[in-house]
């Protein structure tokens, strides 16, 4: 293929992925709308589990497998897999076209980060039933991709000399996987807050309405905790790798460049989260809010700092 065709094929695959994910989004949304009237007995099954002092993330069988909502969610999952494959192809073709790792500018970083979110979500979904999370994953992915193709798109194939380093592979890969996992953790935490409110309203009785479609709050909180416990060391590694690279490129390992500052802020907020999880009175809703604030700091670092700040990390290509 000529470079022109490669670029077009990459763009085509990304558009195909967006269309597929948009349809997946409709099915995920429908899964909540259909069969909403039925109160699902998820609560009873899981509360007993948590009463024993544990909230174990085991695959719980769908309590209502024949439910039209379930069927809709299953279609959504299949379409998400398909969308992920399209997106992976788009990212790979972009890399082939550019002749390097496909994260040299903000457009490429965005499409790769969107792929990261999908991959982390789908990998977790192999181990446990998280179909209820699909909508909250597909929406941020679509927003990221939409932003990428409309605002961030660039024809540039060249890496500026500062990025010509194997640390680009190490540092940015860690950051991309972290971005996917942080997104997942924030989505789960948001659902946990929503579900928690419904549980308080139900006051010990069965949870009804939309909130009944999600696992109970304790399980959601434990899940978010596990994701963050996995991501926090990875994010730490991304920062250390970045510091080693900075030492090599700019002559100092830490210089409070805006990007570094916000990476630090994100790190400190997630450290707060881990401490909150072991502090009485902070383990529940407050910890969930901290996870969401931490993710917001990550987003500030990505969108606001890349585009608006005078940073050494300004490789957005805008």
């Amino acid at each position: 293929m000529t470079p022109q065709q490669l670029a077009q094929a990459s763009n085509g695959a990304i558009y195909a992925s967006m269309i597929t994910l948009a349809i997946a989004m409709v099915f995920f949304a429908a899964s909540f709308a259909v069969g909403r009237r039925r109160a699902v007995p998820v609560t009873a099954a899981v509360v007993t589990e948590s009463a024993g002092g544990t909230a174990v993330l085991t695959r719980t069988d769908p309590p209502n497998a024949g439910d039209p909502g379930r069927r809709s969610a299953n279609i959504g999952m299949s379409l998400t897999w398909l969308g992920m494959i399209f997106l992976a192809a788009g990212v790979a073709l972009r890399g082939v076209w550019a002749g390097r790792v496909p994260w040299g500018d903000m457009y490429e970083f965005s499409i790769t980060a969107a792929l990261g979110i999908l991959v982390v979500f789908l990998l977790v979904s192999l181990r446990q039933d998280i179909r209820w999370l699909g909508l909250f994953i597909v929406i941020p992915v679509l927003l990221t991709l939409g932003m990428a193709v409309t605002v961030l798109y660039t024809e540039s194939a060249q890496l500026v000399p500062a990025l010509k380093s194997y640390w680009l592979l190490i540092h940015v890969t860690a950051a991309i996987i972290s971005s996917g996992a942080f997104t997942l953790a924030a989505a789960v935490s948001a659902v946990a807050l929503f579900r928690g409110r419904a549980e308080r309203k139900a006051d010990g009785g069965p949870v009804t309405g939309l909130a009944a479609r999600f696992p109970d709050q304790l399980r959601l909180q434990t899940m978010a905790n596990r994701i963050i416990a996995f991501t926090f060391p990875l994010w730490t590694f991304a920062i250390i790798a970045g510091a080693i690279w900075a030492e090599n490129a700019w002559g100092r390992y830490w210089g409070w460049d805006p990007k570094e500052t916000w990476a630090f802020i994100t790190w400190v907020i997630f450290a707060c989260y881990l401490h909150a999880r072991s502090t009485v009175g902070w383990r529940g809703n407050r910890a969930s809010w901290i996870a969401i604030i931490g993710f917001s700091a990550f987003l500030v670092n990505y969108f606001v700092i890349n585009v608006f700040a005078a940073s050494l990390h300004s490789y957005s290509g805008l």
Binding site: W256, P258, T261, W262, F264, I265, V268, I269, C272, A297, I305, A309
Partner: peptide, 10 residues
């Protein structure tokens, strides 16, 4: 506080 105090520098 540490997270908050780091913000103005950016």
């Amino acid at each position: 506080l540490l997270a908050l105090a780091a913000v103005p520098g950016s």
